[in-house]
Design a protein around this nucleic acid. Structure first.
Lengths: 330, 330
DNA sequence: TTGTATGCGTTATCAA
DNA sequence: TTGATAACGCATACAA
C-alpha cells in the first residue's frame, strides 16, 4: 500500500487497529499490547509516517517555537545574541523564528502580530526604540525584552549595565598624568547611548574630574566609513591636546582607530583609544586596545531562561529588569 | 462579553452571524452584505480576535515558514547568509526557522526531521559534510543546498566558484618578479577547502608555474588563535625565501596577518598577504590586503529564489547547481 | 486493553 | 448572500 503523506488514519488502517491505539503507541501514553504495538510500529515505518506537528500544535496549544525579533544581523553583537539564543533554546526543545526589523517600528509591529498569529510559545524582542503602539500582546504569550524597556508595557527586560564599564574604561586613563579625553558617542536620544554617556558623567564626577573640561562629541553614526574617519581625523587634528579617546560603540571605536592611523597618531605612544564594542574578533589590532565588550551570550541565556520560566509557569507574572555587566579586555 | 482568546465562533456569536460569514469577512472571499460585514468587523475588534495561524496552516497545508539549517553563527559569512535569507524571504511573506548544527551530522538529521514534522514550506540547508543518512525528505518539501552537494540526493545547490577567485588572487603576485608563495589551507577532505586548493593548482598550471616549487601547508584550523599564530610565525621564519602568503579561509588569513605582525614582517615591504574571507568589516587592517570575499547576499538570494520557485511550482523538479563568484577587494 | 467520538480553529463546499 | 457542515491530523475522555 503506497500512501504519499501518511496520516495516523492510514497507519491505523494498515495495522488493522484504531486511530486511538496508534496515537498511544506514538506518544507512549497508556498501555498497548506488545504484539499490537509492534504491528503499529511496523505500519509506521512501512508507510513512512511522520507525525504532523501542525495538528499537534493545534491540539495541544503548544508550538515549541519562540519568536526572536532583532533590529537585524549587522554586527557581531546581534549575531552572538541570536546564536546563543538558538543554542540555549534548543537545549530546552525550542526552535526559533527569527524576524528582523531594520529598526523600524512598523516592522516590529508586523513581526509581533505575525508571531502572535502563529501562536509561538514566547517572544524575545530587541526593540529599537522605547515606543510601540497599536499592538496588544495577549497575556498567553510571554515577552522578554532585550536592552530596552518599552514605555507602557513593563515586560521583563534584560540589559547591559554601563556605569561600571565606563568606570573601568576611564579610571586607568586618569591614573597617569592628567589626560584630556575626547568622548565620541552616538545620538543620546537612543537610550543605550544615553546610558553610556550618563555613565561617563557619573564616572567623571566620581573621579572628581570636571566634565566641562572634557570633550563630548555626538557623531552621526549613519555616515559611511570614509566620512566617519574623515570627521574624526579632522576633530583630532584640531584638538592636539587630546591624549585619549573613548568611543561608545563599535562603529565609532573602529572609526577612531582608522582616524588615528590616518593622521599617524601612534596608538602606542601618542594617544590611547578605548571604548565599547567587539570590533576585533580576529585579534589583528596592534597594540591591543582596551575594550568593554558586551556579553551577548550571557544576555541571551538570562533572557531565554526568564522567558522559559514564564512559559512554564504562566501564573508567575513578576516582571523584573536584569542587568548584565561588560567584560573588560586588555 | 469578555473572551480570553476569541475564536471565529465567538466572533460569529457576538455578531449574530455564522462562522462561514466571519471567515468570508476575514479572508475577503465571496460577498458579504456591507451591513453584516460591519457588524462582524466590530465584533472582531471588540473581542480582540486574532486569527489562529496554526489552524490555518492545518487547513491550508501552508505554513509560510522555511527552515534554515546552518552549521552555526560563528563568523560574518554565516551571519550575512542568514541575514540575507531572512530579508529576501520576508519580501515574499516567509518567516524563517533557524537551526544550528554545530557541524554535527546528528544535529543536521534532528533539524531536518523537526522541520519536516512542522511541515515547513521549504528548507535551505548548509550541510557540513557530503554525507547524510537515515533521513528521507518528503517530496512535498523542497530543499536547496548551500555550498555543498550531498551524496545520493542531488538537490538544487548554490555554491561559490573558487577557480576564478584563485586566479585573481595569484596572478597579481606573479606579475612582479618571481615570488615564492606559501599556501596555507585547511583540511582538504572538506570539499570547500579542496576546491580552493584545486583552484590554486589549476591557476599555477595556467600561469606556467611549477606547483612543486611552491609551498602548500595544511593547517589544523581547530587550534586556538594563539597556537595558529605561533605555528605560522615559525613556518614563516623557517622559510625566509617566502615573499607572499595566500590563505584559503578567514581563520588562516587572520592568523597569517598576526604572524607577520608577530615576527615583524611588514605587509607593506616584506611580504604580501592575501586570501579568502571577510576578516576586516571595520576596515582597520593597514595596508589593506587583497581579499577574495564570498558573496553571501548573492548566495542567499539565488538560493531562496530557487527554493521559492520549487515551492510555487512543485512539479518543476529540475535540480541544478548555481555558482556564485567571489568579489575581489583591494 | 482497545475503539469511538469529540474538539482544537480554520476553510471550503453546498444547500438554502 | 448566508448558514450548516465536513474536512485538516491529532489527542483524549469515555465507552466497550
Amino acid at each position: 500500500m503506497i500512501v504519499i503523506n501518511a496520516t495516523m488514519k492510514d497507519v491505523a488502517k494498515a495495522a488493522g487497529v484504531s486511530i486511538g491505539t496508534v496515537s498511544k503507541v506514538i506518544n507512549k501514553s497508556g498501555f498497548v499490547r506488545p504484539q499490537i504495538r509492534e504491528r503499529v510500529l511496523l505500519a509506521i515505518s512501512l508507510l513512512n509516517y511522520k507525525p504532523n506537528g501542525i495538528a499537534r500544535s493545534l491540539k495541544n496549544s503548544k508550538t515549541n517555537i519562540i519568536g526572536v525579533i532583532l533590529p537585524g544581523l549587522n554586527d557581531l553583537y546581534s549575531m552572538r545574541i541570536l546564536n546563543s539564543i538558538e543554542k540555549v533554546a534548543s537545549t530546552k526543545g525550542y526552535k526559533i523564528i527569527y524576524c528582523s526589523t531594520n529598526g523600524e517600528v512598523a516592522r516590529e509591529i508586523k513581526s509581533l502580530q505575525w508571531l502572535i498569529e502563529k501562536r509561538v510559545d514566547g517572544i524575545l524582542f530587541y526593540p529599537s526604540s522605547e515606543e510601540l503602539t497599536d499592538v496588544e500582546i495577549p497575556a498567553s504569550i510571554p515577552v522578554v525584552l532585550l536592552e530596552r524597556q518599552i514605555k507602557g508595557y513593563n515586560f521583563t527586560a534584560i540589559m547591559h549595565e554601563h556605569i561600571e564599564a565606563c568606570r573601568q574604561l576611564i579610571e586607568p586613563l586618569t591614573n597617569k598624568d592628567f589626560q584630556k579625553i575626547i568622548f565620541f558617542h552616538g545620538p543620546i536620544r537612543s537610550s543605550i547611548e544615553w546610558s553610556k554617556v550618563d555613565g561617563i558623567y557619573k564616572t567623571l564626577e566620581y573621579l572628581g574630574i570636571e566634565s566641562e573640561d572634557q570633550l563630548f562629541i555626538e557623531v552621526n553614526v549613519k555616515q559611511d566609513k570614509r566620512a566617519l574617519t574623515d570627521f574624526m581625523s579632522k576633530t583630532l587634528l584640531k584638538r592636539q591636546e587630546v591624549t585619549a579617546v573613548l568611543s561608545t560603540n563599535p562603529t565609532l571605536l573602529s572609526a577612531s582607530i582608522r582616524a588615528c592611523q590616518n593622521i599617524e597618531l601612534s596608538l602606542e605612544e601618542d594617544i590611547e583609544v578605548c571604548g565599547f564594542g567587539d570590533i576585533d574578533p580576529y585579534g589583528i589590532i596592534m597594540p591591543p586596545i582596551r575594550i568593554a565588550e558586551e556579553q551577548p551570550e550571557e544576555l541571551a541565556k538570562v533572557a531565554f531562561n526568564a522567558l522559559f520560566e514564564q512559559i512554564s509557569k504562566p501564573t508567575k507574572k513578576l516582571n523584573q529588569t536584569f542587568f548584565i555587566t561588560h567584560k573588560l579586555i586588555n
